[in-house]
Nucleic acid binder design. Structure first.
Length: 314
DNA sequence: AGTAGCACCTGATTGC
DNA sequence: TGCAATCAGGTGCTAC
């Protein structure tokens, strides 16, 4: 369940189960899930076993669980994390050890946690295998501000260092972000999807935000004015907050929270998946075309490639 | 330097 | 019915 609202739903669902839990066993069921480690699954298991998870943090679509190695909670802050990316189809599922089912065919790793006298099973499922698990160092943020949502530590994993602050991060520099979105000759949709500028926006919410702000996905970034860029950021935040309030967007069982339940935002979508259907603002049929390799849905009537000239401007 | 294109996968659905 | 083509919510690398 891959964009910011869905990953945040997972993070928030995970946090109460994994915080202060110690990893007691790790079973890698598909080697490629730990492909970022030179030693693969065995290195992943070895580095994770015995560590205690101190929380659940997210920046954009990137998720990590900071690790502490000592049993002493007064020990210094975490310097490593269990990092995860859900890719297109990743899921975390939590069970009590007694209720855990046989691993699903898509289960790529199963971890056992011990927390408050109870044993828990944490499964990572991923049909398409674009997701991954990783153990890596945490780095200090250049600005000394918190690295992501869910923890105050000014740290991010190495693999997240190049990822921009996300659209709902209170420390996002909105002016710098809208400037970045107005730079270059790519279509604006491609900039919304560029995780190094503002993170967390994926193919669904890019189309939704562009529809809300009435901007054509192919409008060149350099033709976006500051007011429009700022309106686009607001639209992105609005649609993501609404989606988050409903547990995210899901169309099927591939995208579920840690309890296996689906979010309800799919019924709130105005553009994504509505090609050929009438625009709810103007009634004209929405277009659907592939742009930059991603299917894109928009209203060619409401969403103009160039902003309309104001009356009085020559 | 910025950008487009492709590679990485599995499985469900569509069309012939 | 069977099989090939197409499609899917992401990211990173490579080559222009």
């Amino acid at each position: 369940m891959p964009e910011l609202p869905e990953v945040e739903t997972v993070r928030a669902g995970l946090a109460p189960f994994v915080t202060d839990a110690t990893v007691t066993s790790v079973e890698v069921r598909r080697e490629s899930v730990a492909r970022l480690l030179p030693g693969g699954g065995s290195e992943f298991a070895a580095r994770l076993a015995g560590a205690t998870i101190t929380g659940a943090v997210r920046r954009g679509k990137f998720l990590w669980l900071p690790l502490r190695r000592s049993e002493d909670p007064a020990d210094a802050g975490a310097s490593e994390s269990l990092s995860a990316h859900l890719g297109m189809s990743g899921q975390f599922r939590v069970h009590t050890a007694a209720d855990a089912p046989e691993p699903h065919p898509h289960c790529r790793a199963r971890m056992t946690l011990h927390r408050a006298g109870e044993d828990l099973v944490l499964d990572f499922l991923d049909q398409r295998t674009f997701g991954y698990l990783h153990v890596e160092d945490l780095l200090h943020t250049p600005d000394g501000l918190p690295g992501g949502h869910g923890m105050a530590d000014p740290q991010v994993p190495l693999s997240v260092a190049h990822i921009g602050r996300d659209a709902l991060d209170p420390h996002l520099d909105a002016r710098a972000a809208s400037r970045a979105w107005r730079t270059g000759r790519r279509g604006i949709k491609q900039l919304l999807l560029d995780q190094t500028l503002v993170s967390g926006i994926g193919n669904i919410y890019a189309d939704e935000a562009l529809w809300l702000a009435r901007v054509n996905p192919e409008r060149p970034a350099h033709a976006v004015n500051p007011a429009t860029a700022s309106a686009l950021l607001s639209a992105t935040q609005d649609v993501m907050r609404s989606a988050l309030a409903q547990g995210g967007t899901s169309f099927d069982a591939l995208y579920v929270n840690v309890n296996g339940q689906s979010g309800y935002f799919a019924r709130g979508l105005e553009a994504y998946g509505r090609g050929g259907e009438p625009c709810r603002r103007c009634g004209h049929p929405l277009r659907r075309e592939t742009i930059g390799g991603r299917s894109t849905h928009w209203c060619a009537t409401c969403q103009r490639r160039y902003s309309p000239r104001r009356a009085g401007a020559h």
